[in-house]
């Protein structure tokens, strides 16, 4: 593994032209080769939790807004 200090970083923030939020971090070594890339999704709503206890027929009107 290359040392952290020599790593160059390219951030693509935000990812565009899609539905949702995301960012990509790409790490390059001193030769400009890709060492690793991370795709991050920073979004959470919690539908799994807050749909509990609601009338099942209402979910058809709630979950499309995810």
């Amino acid at each position: 593994m290359k040392s952290v200090k020599s790593m160059q970083r390219i951030s693509i923030d935000p990812i565009t032209r899609l539905e949702g939020h995301g960012k990509i971090e790409i790490f390059l070594d001193e030769n400009g080769e890709v060492v690793n890339a991370y795709f991050q999704v920073p979004e959470l709503r919690g539908f799994e939790k807050f749909c509990q206890g609601r009338p099942v027929e209402e979910l058809a009107r709630i979950v499309p807004r995810i």
């Binding site: 959470l44 709503r45 919690g46 799994e48 939790k49 807050f50 709630i62 807004r65 995810i66």
Partner: peptide, 23 residues
């Protein structure tokens, strides 16, 4: 707030716990 704000009936911890541990 809209639909996602129905989550305001719960705190962040119980949402995270349910979503990432219990579903």
């Amino acid at each position: 707030g809209g639909i996602p704000a129905l989550a305001n009936l719960y705190d962040a911890q119980s949402i995270l716990d349910y979503v990432y541990h219990k579903t």
